[in-house]
């Protein structure tokens, strides 16, 4: 059931990227998409009644959730941060040059 939630979230993000005309809204759509896939990956490693995968004193290694997806998602979040920062700075520069965020008006390149 939760997987479907991820799917819906992903589709919302994809809709934002493909359908919106505002550059900033497209970037937000991209962010939503990234969160959806991170959530999905963390869910894959989840098990019921699991606990956080931390090796602590006086605790046996039992019933831990899978720690690997969490490490991978952390990497993916960092990558997402880099992409978002870059795209936002490009969008700001575009605003300086064109004076608008509307992609229908930003059309100096011919298809």
């Amino acid at each position: 059931m939760l997987y479907f939630l991820c799917l819906i979230l992903f589709c919302v993000g994809l809709y934002g990227v493909l359908r919106k005309r505002n550059l900033v809204k497209m970037i937000i759509g991209l962010g939503i998409m990234e969160y959806a896939m991170n959530l999905f990956f963390v869910l894959l490693g989840y098990r019921f009644d699991g606990r956080a995968p931390i090796y602590a004193k006086d605790q046996e290694i039992l019933n831990m959730v899978d720690p690997l997806p969490q490490a991978l998602v952390l990497t993916s979040i960092v990558i997402g941060l880099g992409v978002t920062a870059l795209v936002i700075s490009i969008a700001v520069r575009i605003y300086e040059k064109y004076g608008t965020f509307d992609i229908t008006k930003i059309k100096r390149l011919k298809g």
């Binding site: 991209l30 575009i94 040059k97 100096r108």
Partner: peptide, 17 residues
């Protein structure tokens, strides 16, 4: 330049998807 930023934005969005 204006065209380069536009191309880069397009490329970055497509690449991220």
């Amino acid at each position: 330049e204006a065209e380069e930023l536009e191309a880069s934005f397009k490329y970055a969005i497509m690449g991220s998807v």
